[in-house]
Amino acid sequence: MPSPLDSIDRRILDELQSDGRITNQELSERVGLSPSPCLRRLKQLEGEGVITRYVALVDPETVGLGVTAFVRVRLDQQDDRHLEAFETAIMQFPEVMECYLMTGEADYQLRLLVPSLGTFEDFLRNRLTRIEGVSQVTTSFALRPVVYRTKIPV
């Protein structure tokens, strides 16, 4: 289990979430530490799993993925076997950007990125609804993003 985060750890996380390519020198200056202790804290945050990875954020539209679909999926049974089968299958689809096991009317909520409505229809008809146990699918399409954050509040 990670050790408790103090205010410097939180500032490190805040800075890195704004710019994951920041140099250790610049990071240390922004959080008020000298470079060596800053690097030690950074390595500790990585080692404890607080920082899980570094990524580049890509604008979906610029790579031809202009359609965002939110899909709610109901299974005909919610036992461990059916949940595991669905989750194993859904992880194989690169269009699925997020998948959450839910409470309420749907068992799962998905966020997909696809190039077109035709591509979505193909995904729906030929892959999603063919997963064993899928009994109902409801889809909403995003018109435009209003808030999109990758930076979590620390």
Rank of each mutant, 00 (worst) to 15 (best):
V58F: 02
L5P: 12
S135A: 14
V73N: 10
F123E: 02
T23R: 13
A142F: 03
L112Q: 07
M1K: 05
F93K: 11
S116Y: 00
R11L: 09
C99N: 14
R21M: 07
D59L: 10
D80K: 07
R72G: 13
R81P: 02
Q136M: 04
F123P: 00
L83M: 06
V147E: 04
P145G: 14
Q25S: 05
Y100V: 12
Y148E: 15
R40L: 06
D9H: 02
V55K: 10
F123Y: 13
R130M: 11
L65A: 03
N24Y: 15
G104S: 13
V154I: 03
R40F: 03
Q92V: 02
G47I: 05
L113K: 13
E87T: 01
I8Q: 05
V137E: 09
Q92T: 13
S36L: 08
V31D: 07
V71K: 11
G118Y: 01
A69N: 06
L39F: 11
L27D: 07
I12N: 03
F93Y: 15
R130V: 03
Q44T: 15
E105V: 12
L101M: 13
V154C: 03
V31P: 06
R130S: 04
T139V: 11
Y148F: 11
R74E: 10
V71R: 10
R11T: 02
T103W: 12
G32F: 11
T119I: 06
G32A: 09
D79H: 14
L128P: 04
E61S: 13
T62Y: 03
P94D: 15
D76N: 14
V137I: 14
R11S: 08
D14T: 11
V146D: 06
K151Y: 07
V63L: 09
A69I: 07
L124W: 10
Q17D: 04
R40K: 13
P153H: 12
E84Y: 09
V58G: 00
S34A: 12
E48D: 10
E87L: 07
T62R: 07
P35K: 14
Q17Y: 07
D122H: 10
T52H: 07
R111F: 03
I51F: 12
E26H: 11
V137A: 10
F86H: 06
